[in-house]
Amino acid sequence: MAVFQSDVEVYDYIGEFISSVKDDPAIGPKIRQAGIIIRFVYREPQSQITIDARNPAPEGHFYTVYYGDSAVEPDLVMSMSADTAHSFWLGKVNLMAALTRGQIVAKGPVATALKLLPVIQPTYAMYPKFLKEHGREELVKFG
């Protein structure tokens, strides 16, 4: 059974988690510095999250996060199951291996995503806490 039952759940947890980092003083500026737009296209359940670190972000944020369809044109599109995405944010996915196995397909300049990996490393510890704070601690074991 999939970790998330609907696109709304994907947005409530993965989406809101990514959004929660957008004013983080340590991580936010580094994502901003990458200056790119990444779209995550998930399946099971079908959903889509776009991080825009290129266009100006609202006051106090380092980037903008869109749920579902959005008009911004991404530099890089990463496609995977929502389960893989969940595991990824728990720090349990080796991106290189996942790309090789085809669990994640990266369309565009992959190096830009690889460059962000060390930047988002600290978030792997933050995601389980976020789930706990939002009453979904049980999801952590579905990494």
């Binding site: 890089l76 790309l99 085809g102 994640i104 397909v105 990266a106 369309k107 565009g108 300049p109 992959v110």
Partner: peptide, 8 residues
């Protein structure tokens, strides 16, 4: 450009 990347 449509095919740049990994596994496209």
């Amino acid at each position: 450009l449509d095919y740049e990347g990994f596994g496209v």
